[in-house]
Design a binder for these strands. Structure first.
Lengths: 136, 136
DNA sequence: CCTTGCCTTCAAGTGAACTTTAAGGGTTAC
DNA sequence: GTAACCCTTAAAGTTCACTTGAAGGCAAGG
């Protein structure tokens, strides 16, 4: 499959696929006899994985470190494990922030039809709610 | 409280606080007689809220739209409700991507001490797992 | 043979979200 | 009075993650 088709299948631009390859986020792609990229399902899966992680907010730099670790043939060291755990902690915090924001929005939507003069009262109520969740 | 103290309390730089005010992400801040910002707890809460949403991946632009809606004194329209729901959908997708990535990492960590030549086998296993979650 | 449409590399450009710099003002401490 | 810190605005600079442009190659169609 050429890069155009890969782009259509993944929703990632051709230029971005080339960029991801250059940055080491996806493996080096095989070439045809004339030098064009020939993309297989393995690469497609990798592109989708990168998209997912990027959408989840992981930086290119951290993603590269993570993927190099994941691809490593050598023995896994304590250092590598620490990197994974560090990434995990960052992502869990992000997820929790996101969940809090989602709660916020859901609360707003639930009370959307009420007349509500006081935005501040709502904010305080939500904060109290999140606080008590954290306390428990 | 002056901007420096607010910066220390929130972990947001003074320049970023000014930027957020200029962009309408936090309300206009009261000034002292000489024109310096005088930041109260209400503003502090707003700064923390912005930080949380930004960390969760919401853009300045969407955050501004959301906050203006939230602060609106006027009647809430269908359009406003639609905006909230749109934001909610974006954030839920982000959260789910994040959760999938966290699962990925946890799987990797759980199998860290195993010898594992095949990274690809892992990727396939995870994808199958997520697929079955989606199917269920 | 030349246009269309794919591809290539490399370099420069872009938009978002800040950060840094410049130029200046007010208040307290020596 | 001048140095040390705080503050102000406006504008320019920086970083990230791409996007766009330039210049060219290969293959099919009219």
């Amino acid at each position: 499959m050429n890069i155009k088709e890969a782009s259509q299948q993944t929703g990632v631009s051709s230029a971005a696929i080339r960029y991801y390859e250059k940055e080491g986020l996806i493996p080096a792609i095989d070439r045809t006899e004339v030098g064009n990229r020939d993309i297989d399902n393995r690469i497609l899966r990798r592109i989708r994985f990168v998209t997912q992680m990027r959408s989840a907010g992981m930086s290119i730099e951290n993603l590269r470190r993570y993927i190099q670790l994941f691809d490593a043939q050598e023995d896994n060291t304590k250092e590598q494990r620490a990197l994974l755990q560090e990434q995990l902690a960052v992502m869990e915090e992000k997820r929790d922030d996101l969940q809090a924001a989602i709660d916020h929005l859901n609360y707003k939507l639930a009370h959307f039809d009420d007349h509500m003069a006081s935005t501040e009262a709502e904010l305080r109520a939500l904060e109290a709610q999140h606080q008590s969740e954290r306390d428990s």
